[in-house]
Design a protein around this nucleic acid. Structure first.
Lengths: 312, 312
DNA sequence: TAAAACCATTGTTATTATCTATAGTAATGA
DNA sequence: TCATTACTATAGATAATAACAATGGTTTTA
């Protein structure tokens, strides 16, 4: 049994197809066929049910592939150890970012990061929290930036910053006259929300302290982007809440519509998260340092109350 | 990097000697030399400092070998998974047993076990608890039978039975007239103890609720075997405590010297222990079942109080 | 029913793990 | 100081094998 064979098995399990898996492994399809056969012969079990289309794993096959994932992960950590020893920070690094963080945070740190660590090949994807959790667990992502705490036992979190919620109150709204607002002022009924699947939506709902089934789904206006929320609000459809960093690039003429909360301001915790196996920790450390260094200049709130991003 | 190379590295790290390691791996010494060189070249680090005699690990080498241990362990679990699937119980199984359990428990279950599981090649060693912990951690033992709880985070415990302490009181002793005795009756001063290193000794000391530094080391008579303790006791050197199973094969004429404790009787917890990685769990399960099946007929105490085997 | 998609097989080649034999290098003892 | 011992490294040969190109045999799809 070799590590190479296990990698082949993982690729086939992932793509359910010898030919595609062979491409990903940069070998020809017969190579995979023979190597997998050798592995099956040695262990004297059938791992893949080639009868079904697409290919399926047998019951033992599933367990073996799961264990193969562990072995390959552990094996990759050897290179990790060497890199750490040499102080080398480089290689491919796949990171996911949730939609409500991506557009504001990425431009702030990306240039700095690739300048400071030119040998890291970043692959950045915009993904929902749910997608991120799946992909960190199956090894397709090395890390992610998301709202926390997530209470997932396979995933570790390292807070980057606390981002206050800021209210956007359109003209002639019942709260227009207030300079700062209170959580108690919020009414879920006139609150514009993001679509389902955004954890920022969950944060807002949690903040409003309304039971989910109390929300009249028909009446709620929902949108996929925060930009749209602001426009809807300006049309008089209600008020909305924004993450603080989003308020920094709102046009000046709209600034008068912003209302900060009185302290302790409700905020979301934004963390860099990664698998508990702690692969590629040097790069995660590096990214953590760059981001928290940059954010120190942008957010300076002394007293916040963390709102959970999870549905109740 | 191959699993074979990692196994070679582990063997060298263990024996601090290429030639011996090669023998253990059933290959020639040049094979190890070249494979380790290949590994070092690929990772571009030096793992072994061949300048020193005996060979030493470099700093990175130590980390790499540690990780190699993980990888090889995880790799061996593949065979484990296959065995489990097939219901196969066999292969080499190395087990350690502490001296105060070995002579009484082993004869009770060994025949049954090898009859029921003839394909398991048992390698049994008598070892102290301390030696057992080391060897389970470095992978030289698959499991062990010892007094618990041990409070070791790398090791899992599965209780087999609770073995009461029984007092052995010589003729004309101050406790001779009592039919059952109490913990409060015990005095560390006239108690014969096993030598240092036996956890049964620690259990007795814990039971006597005496601080260790109160024991007058010069005055204490200590012995390496329970048989000797009994003889010393018969010579009038004091009383002693025995594990229950030891009292079963005491000659009948000495039986009148035995005193059971009033319930809840102090007892030691005897467990089968193994590394948290849970390798070879089928065999561990099998052994657990055989032993607890046999012991059910031999020990039937309703109410016991567990005494820790660890020094205070 | 032909074409496409896909895995297995065959025979060949390039790679490589291992072997034997031997050289090189310290430490040890007479 | 010179054998001797106890090592590891190197060289060259060989056997094992991973990968390839070409092809055959299925099953699915159009």
């Amino acid at each position: 049994m070799t590590i190479t064979q296990l990698k082949y098995a993982l690729a086939i399990a992932e793509h359910k197809n010898f030919t595609k898996a062979a491409e990903k492994c940069f070998v020809t399809q017969p190579t995979l066929s023979t190597q997998i056969q050798k592995l099956e012969d040695e262990l004297d079990v059938v791992i893949f049910d080639r009868g079904k289309k697409p290919i399926e794993l047998t019951d033992v096959g599933r367990k073996i592939v799961f264990q193969a994932r562990n072995i390959v992960n552990e094996a990759e950590r050897i290179q990790d150890i060497v890199d750490q020893q040499k102080g080398f920070i480089g290689g491919e690094f796949r990171i996911g970012i949730i939609p409500t963080i991506m557009p504001t945070l990425l431009p702030m740190f990306l240039k700095n990061f690739i300048k400071k660590y030119p040998k890291v090949k970043l692959k950045i994807e915009e993904l929902t929290t749910e997608e991120i959790l799946t992909r960190i667990n199956d090894g397709h992502l090395d890390a992610a930036i998301a709202a926390t705490p997530l209470e997932n036992e396979n995933i570790k979190e390292r807070p980057l910053y606390y981002e206050p919620f800021v209210a956007y109150v359109p003209n002639n709204h019942r709260l227009s006259d207030k300079k700062t607002i209170e959580v108690a002022d919020l009414e879920i009924e006139d609150m514009l929300l993001l679509e389902d699947g955004h954890c920022f939506r969950e944060g807002v709902i949690n903040l409003c302290k309304t039971f989910k089934d109390q929300i009249d789904e028909n009446f709620q206006l929902e949108s996929g982007s925060i930009e749209t929320l602001i426009k809807l609000s300006n049309e008089g459809m209600g008020m909305t809440l924004l993450p603080y960093l989003h308020t920094l690039d709102i046009k000046e003429k709209l600034n008068p519509n912003l209302r900060h909360f009185s302290e302790p301001s409700p905020a979301r915790e934004v963390s860099i998260i990664y698998h508990k196996s702690e692969l590629k920790m040097q790069i995660i450390d590096a990214m953590h340092n760059v981001i928290s260094g940059i954010i120190r200049g942008a957010i300076a709130f002394s007293d916040v109350e963390i709102i959970s991003p999870l549905p109740k």
